[in-house]
C-alpha cells in the first residue's frame, strides 16, 4: 500500500534546554519500522519532551531529528495523541473531519475516511454526539481515530491511558493494536509497566533526560542492563 516510508527515524545529538536547564541530553537513536516502541522512565525523565521533539512540536536546541524520505514539514505522515487530547466543540465526526480537512483532503473522500475512523474506534453510534460530551475513554479513542484518520505512518501516543479505568484502558489498548495492524508504527510513553509488557516491541529507557537503554522488550524486562532500569522495574524511586 505504501511505496515509501518515513522510517527509520533518526535522532543525532538531540538536546533540548528550557529556562537555562538542559532537559534532554545528547540523544542519538534510530527507530525502525516494526512493533511498538515504548518509552519508559520515571517522572521528569523527558519522555513527553522527546515525543514532542520527534513530532516536531518542539525544536531541538542542538542536534537533528531526521525522517527518511521526507522534507521536514510533513506532519501528516506522523501524528500524535496527547495525554489529554483537546476535543473541538463539535460532533465526534466533525472532529475527525476537521483533521482531514486540515490535511487538504477533499470533501468526497473525507466522508468515507471519517466513517472508517469512527468504525475503527467503535464510535459509529456517537458520530453526531458533541465530542466534549463523550466519556474519557471515548474521547481518547476519538483522539486516536482522529490522528489515525489521515493514515499516518507513525503515531505518537503520550500516556494514552493515564487517567482511564481498566475497562476503558483495555478498549484503548485494543484500538492501539488495530492501528498497529493497519501498518502504523506506534511510539508511545506509558507509566503502566503491565501495559508496556503487553504492547512493547522495543523499549527506550530514559532517565534524567538521557537515553540509558534501547533494547528489544523481552531482554529489557527479563534482564535490564543498567542499575537504573533494574531499580525502575523493581518499583524503587528513582531521581
Amino acid at each position: 500500500m505504501r511505496n515509501f516510508s518515513i522510517l527509520p527515524l533518526e535522532l543525532c545529538g538531540v538536546s533540548f534546554s528550557a529556562g537555562g536547564k538542559k532537559l534532554i541530553h545528547d540523544i542519538d537513536l534510530m527507530i525502525e519500522d516494526g512493533p511498538a516502541t515504548i518509552l519508559l522512565g520515571p517522572n521528569g525523565a523527558g519522555k513527553s519532551l522527546l515525543l514532542r521533539l520527534c513530532h516536531g512540536l518542539l525544536q531541538p536546541t542542538t542536534g537533528q531529528v531526521i525522517w527518511r524520505d521526507l522534507g521536514r514539514h510533513m506532519p501528516k505522515l506522523h501524528a500524535m495523541v496527547f495525554q489529554r487530547p483537546v476535543m473541538l466543540r463539535r460532533s465526534a465526526a466533525a472532529n475527525i473531519d476537521y483533521a482531514l480537512k486540515l490535511n487538504g483532503i477533499c470533501r468526497q473522500s473525507r466522508k468515507k475516511l471519517v466513517a472508517e475512523a469512527l468504525e475503527l474506534a467503535g464510535l459509529s453510534d456517537q458520530a453526531q454526539t458533541p465530542a466534549r460530551v463523550l466519556s474519557g475513554g471515548q474521547q481518547q479513542r476519538l483522539a486516536i481515530a482522529r490522528a489515525w484518520a489521515c493514515r499516518p505512518q507513525v503515531l505518537f501516543l503520550d500516556e494514552p491511558t493515564a487517567s482511564l479505568d481498566p475497562q476503558a484502558t483495555k478498549a484503548v489498548e485494543t484500538l492501539i493494536g488495530q492501528v498497529q495492524e493497519s501498518g502504523t508504527k506506534i511510539i508511545m510513553t506509558t507509566h503502566d509497566l503491565g501495559q508496556a509488557r503487553r504492547l512493547a516491541g522495543e523499549v527506550l529507557f530514559l532517565h534524567s533526560g538521557r537515553l540509558i537503554e534501547h533494547r528489544p522488550a523481552e531482554p529489557f524486562f527479563s534482564g535490564p542492563a543498567t542499575s537504573e532500569a533494574r531499580a525502575f522495574l523493581a518499583g524503587d524511586l528513582l531521581w
Partner: peptide, 25 residues
C-alpha cells in the same frame, strides 16, 4: 488550551484563527 493539539493536526496560527473563533463562540 488548543495550540499544541491544533499544531499537531497540521494547523498554523493563521489557519487556526477561524477554528478558535468558532470554538470561542
Amino acid at each position: 488550551e488548543y495550540g499544541e493539539q491544533l499544531r499537531s493536526l497540521g494547523a498554523g496560527r493563521l489557519s487556526a484563527t477561524p477554528t478558535l473563533l468558532w470554538e470561542g463562540r
